[in-house]
Write a protein that binds this DNA or RNA. Structure first.
Lengths: 230, 230
DNA sequence: TCTTATTTTGTACGATCGTTCAATCTAATG
DNA sequence: CATTAGATTGAACGATCGTACAAAATAAGA
């Protein structure tokens, strides 16, 4: 997959209608990719949902793979910004303990996907799909790894005695659990009972904080103050 | 999806060759479904990998959806047996603490997928794919929920004060983290460094034990003896 | 307003999809 | 061995896939 094809420079600004059309197409693609996966969603389905002829999808989105990339990257920037701003604010406040750092990573995602515009809900499922498939490794790394490494470094600074491998593994467990709320919430409810999202968020924070602490080898407990700052 | 279609009764035992052919086709389907997903793997690809003409796939596997179901269900029984035997042995020994119960659930899966026959590796990725997609809810529930409920009940008995919702959520977090080792091990290594599987297993057990304990509200720590038995 | 870059439309192409089927071959059963 | 249920083969079905493209409509910029 070679996605860095240089496109010929524009000579005119796109019309307002064209911008709107493009967004409509990306929204439709986002929804259907999240619903049926990359191979399950057809260009024609996407065009039909967007209410445009098939040819327009290629015009605005390029090839199907490029369209997939564009849809994932479109909201990744805003998500990264929210996460990093939350982390910076936390560090500035001086109360950057383990739970706080975890919350800065998972809560912006869950808040956007569950309380943001309806499109964000589809985006959450889409990220879950893309993250589980090595086929999209290039895309997900480009979109999410910079922020991930920022948080990994912060956690490593909070608990410097932890082996890097333990932090990496714990981080992936945390991400998987977070994404499971988007992709497998039905499963949680099937195994227990309907839960409101705030309760599940609390479970996730408790679960990941304790899990991280255990793997970082300091045996920190819920309720205790985790070791703070380098 | 209606999969309980009654097939006409057999009048003859299948030949040894036919049994072998069927297994070959299911192996090929398992590999390609795991590699490319349900929609990404074509019947023709499966037939080609199995070395048989296309028509044979339908003959032995039925429709594509039936084939998918068959492939997932084929190994689910053995997996369930191993998990439940391990749990029974643990309970009989009287040392059925939280970590032990978790180990009985995740270790058979990881041992099979990482040290069993090569086909099991594909099966692990396939389960990860199917579990993340609500489209296969019916299949995954039929194959995995009975065992899951057995373990949920056991955990609930170990820590009766925990709300059922917390157990269900924690269980899904655990399953997601376990499946992430199959589907996203490359991500763990990209974020830290290559890890051998035994080390990652240890991280997973630590992470989930502490996570469960935190959500079950007793604040049990690694190193301490968790509350044991009713 | 005029020019023309850009967007929109509709159609068509070749490839591949899941599935069906009649003919042929194999081997389980009596 | 003879019978024939079941397994195998290869071709073909209609549908849908991603993509390309010429012609028409639109609107940005001079």
């Amino acid at each position: 997959m070679d996605l860095d094809l240089r496109k010929k420079p524009r000579q005119r600004a796109p019309s307002k209608r064209a911008v709107r059309t493009r967004e409509t197409i990306l929204d439709a693609a986002e929804f259907l990719f999240a619903e049926r996966g990359f191979d399950g969603a057809s260009i024609r389905d996407i065009a039909a949902r967007a209410g445009v002829p098939v040819g327009l999808v290629a015009h605005h989105g390029g090839s199907k793979e490029e369209l997939f990339f564009t849809v994932i990257a479109r909201r990744a920037d805003e998500l990264a910004r929210l996460r990093e701003e939350a982390l910076e604010a936390l560090v500035r406040s001086g109360r950057d303990d383990l739970r706080g750092v975890i919350a800065c990573f998972v809560l912006p995602f869950l808040r956007l996907t569950y309380q943001g515009q309806p499109q964000w809900r589809a985006y959450g499922r889409l990220v879950a799909i893309a993250s589980a498939d090595e086929r999209w490794r290039e895309i997900t790394q480009a979109c999410f790894d910079p922020t991930a490494n920022l948080f990994l470094d912060r956690i490593a600074r909070i608990l410097p005695q932890a082996p890097r491998g333990a932090i990496g593994a714990s981080f992936v467990f945390m991400v998987s659990s977070m994404l499971a709320i988007c992709a497998s919430r039905w499963r949680i409810e099937a195994l227990s009972a309907p839960q409101d999202i705030e309760t599940i968020e609390e479970y996730l924070l408790d679960f990941c904080e304790a899990g991280f602490a255990a793997n970082l080898g300091n045996g920190a407990c819920e309720g205790q103050d985790p070791v703070n700052k380098r």
